[in-house]
């Protein structure tokens, strides 16, 4: 033991201490990885894994050619999906605005009590994926578009709330000071000093979230919350892979279009 520490002292003398730390860090990471890997793969059936390429080839064979005749049937669910995303975003943004004002250090009416509450709402909404929200809501209010819309809205609160409250905290203090100096009330200071400053961020964040919500609402149907995911679920259940292929291509196309729209709008605002 003494011998070892003696050696390590000689070694640290030659190389910076920092390098030793970095080296130990890498070692720890590798050890942790190996350990996690072993725990994770305990239950893995390796026969399935080695069989995977054959499965993939088989699946690929069943997907091609895509069954294009299925496309017209998908238009109504696609419309539903877009509605879930849009109405959900609107609902989420409406709920996120007050939360953001409560969470921002410079506008929160009570930093010791209300601010932590608002921050908790934001974290809770952010950590729970919309699919989990949908799972819960379908169990509570039944399957359908409404569950999807509420799920998307609840998930959006955290995202929009966080980015918006950061924008509020980054506002230019001098403009707010100038409005305060005119004898304006608190509400007027908000509407003249802060709101104009965060408007571009507000629209940018909302459109950005809408774009993300289009992707998320496409799969909500897997748990029964309406939209094109319902069709995906149904096709998967009967192993109609050629229909699955059509659905995936349609989702992909929608996502590309929504991304393009969102980029255009954000570009126009900023």
């Amino acid at each position: 033991m003494t011998d070892l520490s003696h050696h390590s002292q000689v070694w640290t003398y030659r190389t910076p201490r920092k390098r030793l730390f970095i080296w130990l860090g890498w070692l720890a990471l590798v050890a942790l990885f190996v350990w996690c890997w072993q725990i994770m793969t305990e239950t893995t059936i390796w026969m399935f894994v080695t069989d995977a390429p054959r499965q993939a080839a088989d699946m690929g064979g069943r997907m091609l050619p895509p069954r294009w005749a299925y496309l017209p049937e998908l238009m109504q669910p696609l419309w539903d999906t877009i509605n879930i995303a849009t109405l959900g975003t609107i609902g989420g943004v409406i709920m996120a605005v007050p939360v953001a004002f409560l969470a921002a250090r410079n506008t929160s009416p009570s930093v010791t009590f209300l601010r932590p509450v608002a921050l908790f709402i934001i974290v809770a909404s952010r950590s729970i994926n919309s699919l989990i929200w949908a799972l819960l809501l379908v169990a509570i209010i039944g399957p359908g578009l409404l569950a999807g819309i509420i799920a998307i809205a609840l998930r959006s609160i955290g995202f929009v709330g966080k980015l918006l409250y950061e924008a509020i905290e980054e506002t230019d203090k001098r403009q707010i000071e100038a409005i305060t100096a005119t004898g304006a009330s608190q509400a007027q200071i908000l509407s003249y000093g802060i709101v104009p400053q965060i408007m571009p961020a507000f629209w940018g964040i909302s459109v950005f979230r809408w774009d993300i919500n289009i992707r998320e609402s496409a799969i909500l149907g897997l748990v029964g919350a309406g939209g094109i995911g319902l069709k995906l679920n149904a096709s998967l259940a009967v192993l109609a892979w050629n229909q699955v292929a059509v659905i995936l291509l349609l989702i992909l196309g929608t996502v590309i279009v929504s991304e393009w729209v969102s980029a255009k709008v954000r570009h126009a605002i900023i």
Partner: peptide, 17 residues
């Protein structure tokens, strides 16, 4: 405060209005 007008360094206008 209404009785006291204030003029600022770097103007402090609400830029986006």
């Amino acid at each position: 405060r209404r009785r006291i007008g204030m003029i600022f360094q770097e103007y402090a206008l609400v830029e986006r209005l």
